[in-house]
Each structure stands twice: as C-alpha cells, then as structure tokens.
Amino acid sequence: MTELLLSPLRRLGHTTINAIWRLGFITRFLLAILRYSGQSLLRFNLTIREIYFAGVMSVIIVVVSGLFVGMVLGLQGYNTLSRFGSADALGALVALSLLRELGPVLAALLFSSRAGSAMTAEIGLMKATEQLDAMSVMAVNPIARVVAPRFWAGVISMPILAAMFNVMGIFGGYLIGVVMIGLDSGTFWSQMQNNVDLHYDVVNGLIKSLCFGIAVTLIAVFEGYDATPTAAGVSAATTRTVVTSALVILAVDFVLTAFMF
C-alpha cells in the first residue's frame, strides 16, 4: 500500500529532478556555444554554409505558408469586420496579426520542423557514426566547429524568415481583400500604414522571432548533441526537438506578449 502511494511520488520527483538537471545542462551548453563562437564568427563561411541549409532551404515552406495564412486572414477578417461595417480595417488587421503574433510564431514552428529537426538528426548521426569523436581526437572542438555555426545560422535566419512570412502574409491578405473581394486598394494600405507602428509592432515582432530563433536552434543542437548514439536514440531526439520547440515557442510567446503589448 505504501509502495502504491510512494511510487507515483517517486516518479514525479525523478521527473522533476531530471527536468531541472536537463535545464542546467542546456544552460551550460549555451554558455559553451557562446564561449566557442569565435571561430564560427571569424570563419564566417562556416556559418554561411549552415545559413544556406537551415535558412535558405526553409524559404519555400515559409513563403508558401505565409501566403496561405495571409489569404485565410483576409477571408476570415473580411467576414468578421464586414459584420461590424469596418471592412476597411482589413489591411490593419492582417498586418497587425501577422507582425505581432502569427509571423514570428508560425515561422518559428515551421523552422523547427524543417530545419531544427534536420539539425538534430544531423548532429545525432554525426555522434552515432563517431564523427564528433573523430573531430575531437583531431584536436578540433565539435562545439566550435559543428554546433556553434549551426546555432548562429538559426539565430540569424529566424528573424529574416519571419519577415518573409509577414511580407507574403500581407500580400496574401491583399490578394483576397483587394483583388478578390474588391476593397479599395488605397484604403487597404493606408489603414495598414496608419495603424502599424514601426517600433511597437514591427520591431517587437522581430525581437520575438529572434528569441524564438535562439530557443529553437538551441533545442535542436542540444538534442542532437545529447542524443543516444543509436538509430532509436536519434529518432527520439528528433521528435523531442519538434515537440519541445513547439511548446517552448508558445510559452515564450505568451511571456513576451505579456511584456510587450
């Protein structure tokens, strides 16, 4: 009976300790990345290569998704606004939704599934096939050579991808509102111009996506580096990257929104 009561308690304790331990480990990992970032910033071609794989290769999915999200916003926004006779405000609604929330959050979610999971799998497989060991034995620090360039590539790519998402989303809203429904083009854009503040909306949105970039990329490289070096281990790490990133993005978004707006 006592065992029956204690067992869940023990499991809870174990899970909690484990979570705190991992949090400490990931923090130390971030510090190690920052400490060994010199090479990836001085030999910037290493980082540029990773920006290509993580950022440039994600452009298509981000741009297409942005367009669809913008078009959906246009349709739904017009439906709702026209009920209150304020369909003219569609431009402002589309732009504000995208700049403040949808752009940074959805671009980060897409980035974690497209590039984050690939980073985890790649680093995990490098570990499983002793490539990281080989590097370390060649007196080359894998954190400096493999992890840091990927980390900076993610941090740099994320705000740019979010900005692309926003631009395409606004274009999608324009296609629906102006081209399809027939709202006045001048009103659409002037409403947007009048209601969007560069600092309050655009810069805050970019700060958000920068934070998401740090979080998502850190999770991706950490999970890869920490993966059990087997096929099952790498697969589990890749899943953890996508799941943890999604939760962290939404949680961080809530905290940032509470502070910013």
């Binding site: 490098m126 096939t129 002793e130 490539q131 080989a134 590097m135 034995v137 060649m138 007196a139």
Partner: peptide, 15 residues
C-alpha cells in the same frame, strides 16, 4: 591530440 592520428572502426569520415 594534434600530434596523434586515430583511425576509427568505420572510418568516421565527415559525411
């Protein structure tokens, strides 16, 4: 380590 070379079991080439 710089003065040392190591051949891994399956080569461990950077893929």
């Amino acid at each position: 380590r710089r003065r040392m070379g190591m051949l891994f079991q399956f080569g461990a080439l950077f893929t």
